[in-house]
Amino acid sequence: MYRNDTVIPWFAILFAVALFWMSYLNGQHIAGLAGHTPEELSVGQIGLMAFGAVLFMYGFMGLMSNWLEGEELRPIRHFPEPSTAPMVAGIILVLLLTAMGGFYVRLLIYSAQTGHNPTHLQGGLFAVMALVIALLLATYKKFYEREEAVTEDEHSEVPW
């Protein structure tokens, strides 16, 4: 198994989904026992979800690493050729990010003025912005960055 294999990341994501499913079932179980829908997450649910989140992140990073660097890291110089699709994707993402940045500022001003903090909206918007930034960085690294891979020890630490 090579260091940038997709086997471990896929399993990590699979386990993450299973853990989230388990925490959902846990909630259902509690609801069944208590006779009503619990309003707070139980400690067990929080634990399962935290493990799930960590595993999901590891898996996602592994898949990303595989996409960006390939299955095997060979000594090579990589000169991406300019092409249209990544350029268009980049422009759209940048426009989207700018618009969301403006909207986020508006949201903060709104909170300051009214004293009402729509935390769900703020958190969701911020998360989407972070995701767009990540996509932009990945696009740049994959389609624009010139880079040179030097030989690495195959028995190095876990890459992701």
Partner: peptide
């Protein structure tokens, strides 16, 4: 321009 439209324009306020 895009940032300003969303940050300062009245449409965002309405959406929020």
């Amino acid at each position: 321009g895009i940032w300003g439209f969303f940050a300062l324009g009245p449409s965002s306020q309405k959406i929020i």
